[in-house]
Amino acid sequence: MALEDSHVRRAAHLARLAVSDDQASDFVEDLSRILDMVDQLQGVNTDGVAPLAHPLDATQRLRADEVTETDQRDTFQRCAPAVENGLYLVPRVVE
C-alpha cells in the first residue's frame, strides 16, 4: 500500500503534529520504507486466526466502587503550564 504525501499530512493533522513541507517529504520517505517492511504481513495466511490484543488470556478485574482519592489539585497543577482559579487554561475554544 503506497504511502502518499496526503496520508502523512492527514496523520500529522490527526496526531496534532506541526510538520513543515521538508519534514513531510522526509516522513513520506521514512514511513514508506517502514510500511514496505510492514507489508510483509500480507504474506502470512491468517485465515481463521483471531486477533490477539493481550499476550495473556486474562480477563478484567473489577474495582470496588469506593472513593479512594483525595483532592491533590495543588500538587497536580504545579506541573501545569497555565492555570487560573484551579482551571487549566487553553486558547479560547469556539463552540
Binding site: N85, G86, L87, Y88, R92, V93
Partner: peptide
Amino acid sequence: KSLHEDFHGMTGIDL
C-alpha cells in the same frame, strides 16, 4: 467541561 467565561481570552478546563 470547558468554561468559556473570560480568562483573558482563554478557556478554562475543569476535569
